[in-house]
Design a protein around this nucleic acid. Structure first.
Lengths: 186, 186
DNA sequence: TACAATTTTCAGAAATTTCTGAAACATTAA
DNA sequence: TTAATGTTTCAGAAATTTCTGAAAATTGTA
């Protein structure tokens, strides 16, 4: 398993970006390698290509499985586990997006729901709760929107993302139509 | 500067989520505190409330200024710098979103543009480049979409996010209309 | 100018995260 | 069974990130 300098650069970059995207360096590298490699790879191959220990590979694969980003394969007559990236690039992006929504929004929504149940004890708390309520409203909306997006078909998603500034024109159009029709619940 | 247990919980939570959102614990805590506190706070007050060193406060404020998430104020006859959260909750969310787009997408787009200029040297590299191209196409689209979103007016953004499943209906509608009209560039 | 108040910097300390490698565990084959 | 092959676990090591606090730099005042 020798990587071309192209692949090497791609893999190293994914390692460095990993932490910004929600996983650690080696997990990022493993995902990158599985993404560009045509054949399924086993743990030894991953470890050798990335120069990391067997234990680290195992933990990384566990993490990638938790993210549902890799798929397990078997070769006839070979007891090793082989892995590939799970699905198309679009599938993977959707999975990362969905997983990050859960990790980055849900815990905060849940805490805020809880805090907003309490009665404020003084003026300062009233103000604090007002702001927390604003944060909550925004994050909840964002959470719903993210969920909506990740449920769109690939076609719809593509159409939406390609709209550019046409998006606000479409929103105006919809606003005009809404008056007369049975508007979608908002 | 004594925090109510509500505020305390909110601040601590933001500290813990901080790393997932792109900043470190104390920066998260400082942002949370400035968000729920009605009055501008100076560095000493932040340090006391959060029990962190003066140096750490200074670095945190520098970071928050780099994110454009805080605003500097002055009180007449007081030489200290006072800070508040910059703008409304929506403004802040937009700023974080935009800043994260830059940090999480742009470096990768830039690397991929570079790598895709090179001619593949063998079959394996052809395959790797195909996948890199797919990643590039997707991330570029995502980057443009994110930019579009962060430029929408607050009203449009609100309308869009509230659409829920109405969104795919709207996309169908637009698809039908497109045939006859001068479609928006895609 | 001197000096007092405030902020920033940054070397080293502390805390946290990631990684290694050997041992334990699991699975299949003989 | 036992051996052979492969995977997982996890304690401690290494690397990285964050934090402290004292010294340096900056800013305003007299």
């Amino acid at each position: 398993m020798k990587l071309s300098s192209q692949s090497q650069a791609f893999v190293l970059h994914f390692g460095e970006m990993g932490s910004r995207w929600g996983f650690n360096r080696t997990v990022g590298q493993m995902l990158a390698l599985l993404t560009i490699h045509s054949e399924p790879l086993n743990a030894d191959q991953l470890g050798e290509a990335l120069k990391i220990s067997r234990g680290n590979v195992s933990m990384g694969l566990k993490e990638l499985q938790a993210w549902r980003l890799v798929e397990l394969h078997h070769r006839p007559g070979d007891r090793k586990d082989y892995f590939t990236a799970a699905g198309s690039i679009w599938d993977m992006a959707r999975t990362v997006f969905e997983e990050r929504r859960k990790r980055e929004l849900d815990p905060t929504l849940s805490l805020l729901r809880q805090l907003l149940l309490n009665d404020p004890q003084d003026e300062e708390e009233v103000r604090a709760q007002e702001r927390m309520q604003e944060v909550y409203t925004l994050l909840e909306l964002l959470d719903e929107f993210a969920t909506t997006l990740s449920r769109l078909s690939e076609d719809d998603l593509l159409r939406l993302m390609k709209m550019g500034s046409g998006l606000s024109r479409l929103l105006d159009l919809r606003e005009k139509l809404k008056g007369g029709s049975s508007g979608a619940g908002d």
